[in-house]
Each structure stands twice: as structure tokens, then as C-alpha cells.
Amino acid sequence: MSDINTIIKPENLIYKRTDVLSDNDLSYCPGCGHGTVHKLIAEVIEEMGIQDTTIGIAPVGCSVLAYNYLEIDWQQAAHGRAPALATAVKRLMPEKNVFSYQGDGDLAAIGTAETIHACNRGENIVMIFINNGIYGMTGGQMAPTTLPGMAASTCPHGRDVSHDGEPIKISEILAQLPGTCYVTRQSVHTAANVRKSKKALRKAFENQQANKGTSLVEIVSNCNSGWKMTPIKSNEWMEENMFPYYPLGDIKNQ
């Protein structure tokens, strides 16, 4: 043990919790990707030195409490309306860095209209989209992004595409719109993917500073409570089932 104590010294520190994260304990379930994405946003904000000029738009869903966890200014939008509120904030204060943080139920179901029109107008904002294929907060109901055959509390025998349609690939749809400059799909289930996601988030914020238009960063994430799996099992399930339908990588990069 004395060996470890010789390593644990301030000069050897290589990774620590960023000060942009608050001291509050996250309300998310153990292993939830939300926490990792919050951390990445905080680190990008710290590295870019934009803590004082960043305004986040919190959604409705599990991450409704995001304003408790990042030490920046926040607004709380009605369900799905984060892109509309982000539009207003950015237009009134164009010098601020504005991002919305939304889940799939928020961005791809209830807020589809706001999402599509904000992207079509090319609003100069960052949209961070957490896709876990389910309504996590309200009890694991089927979302538009739920996979075919995937069980949810409102489709206990699995999603029937003849009845409910195919899962919506909203990022591919948004990439068609001329207003978007950067659309990418990432994940945070391995260390390499976390690093890639951080680069994508940084690029999105840099696009905003360069007035390039709307940047959308989709993070395919787990919902181990909603999927009724352990955190580790849910990450494996995500790799096997989510990624074939939602392939990772840049969809649009201009």
C-alpha cells in the first residue's frame, strides 16, 4: 500500500472531476449514460473556457434535473420544446453558447415539430440527443425509437412494426435538412467511445461559435432500469441490438 501512496500526489494527478460539475449526487440509476454525457459536456465547457457564457436548455424526462448538476445557466423547457426555447435564447443573446439536452421521447416524439423546424431554420445551437430507445423516466413505455421486437411496458410482447411502425431514425432525417451542419451518432459505453463523444461535443460547440448552423450530437445510451438489465449487461445488449439499427459515426459534417 505504501507504493500506492507514493503515486497519489498532486503532481501525478491526471484525471479528476471537473469543477463545472456540481457536488450534487446524480439522480440517475447506476450505470446510466446520462451521467457520462453530463460529465463530457462539463469537461468541454471547462476546456473551452465558456462556463460563464453557456446556457443549457433542460428537457422533460430523467434529465429534467440536469440544471442541478452543471454549474452553468439553465432554462427548463416544456416537454419537447427545448429547441424552440434554445432558438429564443440564442436569438436574444447571440453571444451565448446555447445547447439543448434531450432524450428520445422528448426530441423524437413530443418535440418532433420543434426539432425539425429548428434544424430546418438552421438555428445556431447545439442539440444533444440521448437515445435509449425507451421512455425511461415514466416507466419504460415504448418510444418512437424502440427497436422492433423490443419489449417495453406498453408493448410487453415486443414492438410490432405492423402496428407501431419502424423505429424512427431522427438523426438521419435531420441530416437531410440544409440547416444542420453537423449530425453525428456516438455512444459512451466504452472508454474509446467516450473520448470520441467528447470530441464530437467539442466540435458541435465550435460549430456554434463559427455560426455554422445546427449541430446535433446523438448519443446511443442505455436504460438499464427500463430495459430491466444490469448496467454491464445493458451495455452489451446495446452493442448487439441498438448499434446495428443505429450505426455510430458522423452522418453529416460540413
Binding site: N12, I14, T18, L21, G35, K39, A191, R195
Partner: peptide, 30 residues
């Protein structure tokens, strides 16, 4: 603990950001 190489993979993936990582250069410790 002897196997740790200080790669910080655990720190960056931790959803609750509760891991701090230290690394000493090779040969710096006995």
C-alpha cells in the same frame, strides 16, 4: 493495485465521476 497503469479509462467512463486517477512516470517509484 500493482497492475494499475493509470490509463484513466475508469475515470472518464464513470457516470458519477467518482474516480480520480494518478500516474507516476516509469521509474519514479520504487
Amino acid at each position: 493495485p500493482d497492475a494499475c497503469i493509470g490509463c484513466s479509462n475508469c475515470g472518464i467512463i464513470c457516470p458519477d465521476t467518482c474516480i480520480t486517477v494518478y500516474r507516476a512516470k516509469a521509474g519514479a517509484t520504487a
